[in-house]
């Protein structure tokens, strides 16, 4: 079992390090668990996931992030990725001229030991089995990464990458945004198919809707850069019923 431990984490934009966005956040995720972070817009949810992945726009000014007890803060984004962290992007980038199949192949190759050669037959076999699992058409992977993709296709591409790279922890940043209900179901089915003791998931979402399809083990409410409430899946329903103002007033009276 692996663990991802976020300790008193303080994150700011690299441009304005004196103005923290995440203000001392604590959370531990173990493989096998699905955690959902919910919260109003601008509360630091996406900042949290990008900072953990090592995005250069964000600087961690306090606290630590530990993967199996070891700090990852000194690691480059690609080292963090190879160590087992996956970020499903809210807005995935386009890579013109590079097919999904070749992109994934490069990513798989990057995880292999120096001098070790990728077995092309084995690679495609695995790719096709994951595509079948996610009900993705074979033609999909010959398209350039995210180029001209619909919102649903982009998310599907993210899920396929996650399935192929088999991370220990997946940070899913607003994976549901911009998806219609059918696309949402496909994404959820994909995540559910991968769910298991080898994978820990941090779902970041604004809406309860996604949690109807991916039922979390834990729900955390984030507000003003911190987790202010934690509970089980019922917390999400309560939040949906009462709205985020409930959290704010609750906090004010606390």
């Amino acid at each position: 079992m692996s663990s991802l431990e976020i300790r008193d984490l303080v994150v700011a934009l690299t441009a304005t390090p004196e103005k923290p966005i995440v203000k001392g956040l604590n959370l531990t995720i173990k493989t096998g668990e699905v955690h959902a972070i919910m919260g109003p817009n601008g509360t630091g949810k996406s900042t949290l996931s990008k900072a953990i992945a090592g995005h250069p726009d964000y600087t961690i000014t306090g606290g630590d992030v530990l993967l199996d007890g070891k700090s990852i803060l000194e690691m480059e984004p690609d080292e963090r990725a190879r160590a087992g962290l996956f970020l499903a992007f809210q807005y995935p980038s386009e890579i013109p001229g590079v097919s999904i199949a070749n992109f994934l192949r490069a990513a798989v190759q990057a995880r292999m030991a120096e001098g070790e050669e990728l077995d092309a037959t084995g690679y495609y076999k695995k790719l096709y089995s994951k595509m079948d699992l996610l009900k993705i058409d074979r033609k999909f992977t010959s398209r350039s990464v995210n180029e001209g993709f619909s919102g649903g296709e982009k998310k599907r591409c993210e899920i396929l990458q996650m399935a192929m790279l088999e991370p220990a922890f997946s940070l899913m940043d607003e994976t549901d945004s911009g998806l219609d209900i059918d696309a949402l179901k496909i994404v959820a089915e994909g995540v559910n198919a991968m769910r298991g003791e080898k994978l820990g998931v941090l779902l970041i979402t604004h809406y309860q809707r996604l949690l109807d399809y991916i039922v979390p083990d834990f729900v955390h409410v984030m507000y003003d850069g911190r987790i202010v409430k934690s509970g089980d899946k019922n917390l999400a329903l309560e939040l949906e019923a009462k709205g985020y103002d409930w959290v704010k007033t609750d906090l004010a009276t606390a």
Binding site: P56, A81, P92, I95
Partner: peptide
């Protein structure tokens, strides 16, 4: 960053972009 997040080094990411 997107490519690095998939495990490619910065140089590999740039190379892939150029090759594309």
């Amino acid at each position: 960053f997107y490519m690095q997040q998939r495990g490619l080094t910065e140089a590999q990411a740039m190379s892939l972009a150029v090759n594309g």
